[in-house]
Design a protein around this nucleic acid. Structure first.
Length: 339
DNA sequence: CCCTGTCA
DNA sequence: TGACAGGGG
């Protein structure tokens, strides 16, 4: 999932408050997947309403957005459109992995292996159409704008930051850097703890920002070469070279100058290489969006979350209160009308 | 993930 | 007040 180039990138720790007054274009798919895989009970079961609908993502959205609002951050969600044809292999691979994880989850449960069970439960998470639909519904009631990308959400987010409509692209993946996002923020959470994948160990995680130009300069490469490194390591559109991680990829690209030369030297090939490079450089994006934050519709949120999905009214009202207060406070302080 | 209650 | 356990839906 995503491109693994984090090890060669310079990151800057940012406090949650450093992002005050900033517009953050959130990768919807990435965030929802994160919520689905992490918001679970000890045994691995996701949160569900009485009709057996998964609700982990709704919980994640409600509380995380309340926290962002309180920090003065303006979120906008960006959702994926039609993936490029050359993503088909990755998509079917993910489907296969999910199916395998589902069986292994059941097996581990039967054997009483709780840690294994949890791991496979997470891996079986799927962001399906219903998850996306009711996320958009909740976000709309909360007054948070959503953008429908023509293709990859990370590409659309990158475009919006370049255009100046947003300040950061937010995702756990580094892909939007490949699409040219000047600034990416990761770990957009308040709780400074995260579970290590697989193990039952928690580590501290702080939000961090990555500056594209700074990294390009530091690595002494250009953007095409960064894309070349990504293609060496493997992206959603290609498998990557055998036993080549980010550090080796950097060395290879610097040594040979371009991905084409690296492949030529190794006698290997990547299908539709030029089309893929061009997709990173000139992805389909749209200007058809409006960024407008509206005051939360309390009754609709309560109806949706409490009546339809069995959330506690006390908790939801408290969260909506936080949304309203934060918005009003900002509007007074900065003249920059939120609502 | 995030919230809430408890305990020192 | 901050760490921790437990539950959320």
């Amino acid at each position: 999932m995503g491109v693994d180039i984090g090890d060669i990138l310079e990151k800057r720790q940012v406090g949650f408050d450093d992002l005050a007054h900033r517009i953050v274009a959130i990768d919807g798919y990435n965030t929802l997947y994160q919520f689905l895989s992490i918001i679970r009970q000890r045994d691995g079961t996701p949160l569900k309403d009485s009709k057996d609908n998964i609700t982990s993502h709704l919980s994640g959205i409600l509380y995380r957005m309340a926290n962002l609002f309180e920090a003065g951050i303006k979120p906008v969600f960006v959702f994926d459109g039609k993936p490029p044809d050359f993503k088909a292999d990755t998509i079917s691979q993910r489907k296969k992995s999910r199916a395998e994880a589902r069986t292994k989850w059941d097996e581990a449960k039967e054997k009483g292996l709780s840690e294994e069970a949890y791991k496979y439960a997470q891996a079986s998470s799927k962001v399906d159409a219903r998850i996306v639909e009711d996320s958009m519904q909740l976000l709309d009631f909360m007054g948070i704008p959503c953008v429908q990308a023509p293709s990859e959400g990370e590409a659309q987010a990158a475009y919006m930051v370049n255009k100046g409509d947003a300040d950061y692209s937010a995702s756990q993946d580094y892909d939007s850097l490949l699409f040219g996002a000047p600034r990416v923020v990761r770990n957009l959470t308040i709780t400074g703890k995260r579970k290590l994948p697989g193990k039952n160990v928690y580590i501290d995680v702080e939000p961090e920002s990555i500056d594209l130009m700074q990294n390009i300069k530091l690595l002494d490469i250009d953007r095409q070469q960064l894309i070349g490194i990504a293609l060496c390591v493997g992206t959603d559109y290609n498998k990557g070279l055998e036993k080549v991680g980010p550090k080796t990829a950097l060395k290879l690209i610097k040594q040979h100058g371009s991905i084409h030369k690296v492949l030529e030297h190794r006698g290997e090939a990547i299908d539709e290489l030029d089309a893929k490079i061009d997709f990173f450089l000139n992805p389909p994006v749209t200007d058809a969006y409006e960024l407008k934050w509206k005051s939360p519709q309390k009754e609709k949120i309560v109806d949706f979350l409490c009546k339809q999905h069995d959330f506690s009214e006390e908790r939801v009202l408290k969260a909506v209160d936080r949304l309203e207060k934060a918005g009003k406070q900002r509007s007074q302080q900065t003249l920059d009308q939120w609502f």
